[in-house]
Design a protein around this nucleic acid. Structure first.
Lengths: 275, 275
DNA sequence: CGCACAGAGTGGTCTAGACCTCATCATCGT
DNA sequence: ACGATGATGAGGTCTAGACCACTCTGTGCG
């Protein structure tokens, strides 16, 4: 099976990308979890590159959690742990992944003026126009969560032109504001009466509240609140090694090597006490 | 300032570790966020190693989120984002980090037989002896959370020999079972009467429940339940890019290259619906 | 005064080897 | 039969260069 290079998808001009793409396709299309990939020296020959180049490609996938190296044995497709991490996924994607039928009831879809909170999180001025979407999301017919979403109108004016989108993330992607990463604060709370009614809560009134900021390449592109039924929803979080945390002595005047980033607003903090 | 190597802490025998440790110390002791580290070629000379070796050291710290490379400019101390991620930290460490005084009330400290749930999570047999610790943890005198901890006696028999440790993680580290990573499931719940009383809850009865498994090199070393006051505690989580997730075709018969790992028990799943 | 351009310095990619440790397995000897 | 051993081949570390792409800065020209 020579000519592996043909598989390259976006190899561009870098050889290690060609190798990486080849391996990616291999993992997606042919290999199962635990299977070994071709040895580094095999790849060296097959692609006609040096071993350091192959190692660079493999290292990238190891960092992503796709592969695992084992000295003396080989490199293997990693168990899917990573897929279970919190991801920037759509409600619909999430539900489909676990075989449930997602449905949505739109309670409101309009343009509103940004409240101070929303403005802060989206890094716009209070009063600026934002698209606002207010929905109840259900799985297999049972209400699962209540969701409020804000997106700056200035960022994507025609976002709701075709009516409220089934997936805001999809809509953002379609308008060149693909979500790249996000941050989310989780807390427990007692449901308001409105929430209890919409979610059909009985005796148990606890809900899991998520406040999420989603970022595209250019900055915050969406802010959302969501309240999940506590009896149906829990979140799995991986915990990194504590290590002797490497913490620099302090902050220098200039904030960041790449000045595109803006200061994180609000009191977000890891495992935070908000007193 | 010659002889940078002297700074090496655990350089062992690998040259790139010497460079990495040197950089780590630099970041911890001298540099501020945004400061540049010495250039790769400078380090090459200073340590008398090749550039690939320096790059390996730098790459390790970039992967850890300690440093950031910027082509054409240099390598810089990364903003502390990473430090805010969920970490495998002690309650005491957490509170100290935000300048609060942690205190603990021990409600129970004894050896008990593992319940089926505990046994499953710790991958031991039901009925096996486990150290059990039951505590209320407070910050600045106000109850913050209720915590139950289980550790297999077989793993660290003398864990409680000096009485209940102030920090279980510290105790584990001291006995050669240093926590390496963990996984945690978060959910909202209504406090039980006992919890409400211990936490001094008023009208609001919602608590944030965390079930955590902590792993050392050899496997699960601790299982814990914690219930946090919802008005004082929230959790910040980063959300990874959704990307076209690289997912292998299926699972092969053998589970994992390193057989030390055992199947993850229970219904842990990313952003999970537990119906 | 202001702008363009060149040079220096940075990280990014890449080579063609080398020797190491470690895991596995077939073979040989007891 | 069974255990020791060595061959094989995997990844781990490392060298001494090379050229490329990018950023910044200083200089000189208009």
């Amino acid at each position: 099976m020579g000519r592996a290079q043909q598989d390259a998808v976006s190899s561009g001009s870098h050889k290690y990308l060609a190798v990486r793409d080849y391996l990616t396709n291999l993992v997606v299309r042919e290999l199962k979890v635990g299977d070994a990939i071709p040895s580094e020296r095999t790849l060296t020959e097959r692609f006609g590159v040096s071993r350091m180049t192959v190692r660079q490609a493999v290292a990238a996938l190891v960092t992503e959690g796709v592969l695992e190296r084992v000295q003396g044995r080989g490199t293997f497709v990693a168990p899917q742990r990573m897929d279970f991490e919190l991801r920037l996924t759509t409600f619909g994607e999430e539900m489909q992944r676990r075989g449930m039928e997602p449905t949505t009831t739109v309670l409101a879809s309009q343009t509103v003026a940004a409240t101070p909170e929303v403005a802060t999180e989206l890094e716009i001025a209070p009063g600026d126009d934002v698209h606002f979407l207010y929905r109840v999301r259900s799985a297999d017919g049972a209400p699962m969560c209540i969701e409020q979403v804000w997106v700056p109108v200035a960022l994507v004016p025609p976002l709701f032109d075709d009516g409220p989108p089934a997936s805001v993330y999809e809509a953002l992607r379609a308008h060149g504001q693909a979500p790249v990463w996000g941050e989310q604060t989780l807390a427990a709370a007692d449901a308001t009466d409105a929430e209890a009614s919409l979610l059909g809560l009985g005796r148990s009134r606890a809900v899991l509240r998520a406040r999420r900021r989603t970022f595209s390449d250019t900055g915050p592109c969406m802010y959302s609140h969501a309240s999940y039924r506590s009896d149906r929803y829990s979140v799995w979080v991986p915990l990194r090694a504590p290590g002797p945390a490497i913490v620099p002595r302090g902050r220098s005047a200039r904030r960041d090597p790449h000045d595109t980033s803006a200061p994180v607003a609000g009191a977000h903090d890891g495992t935070t006490t908000e007193v």
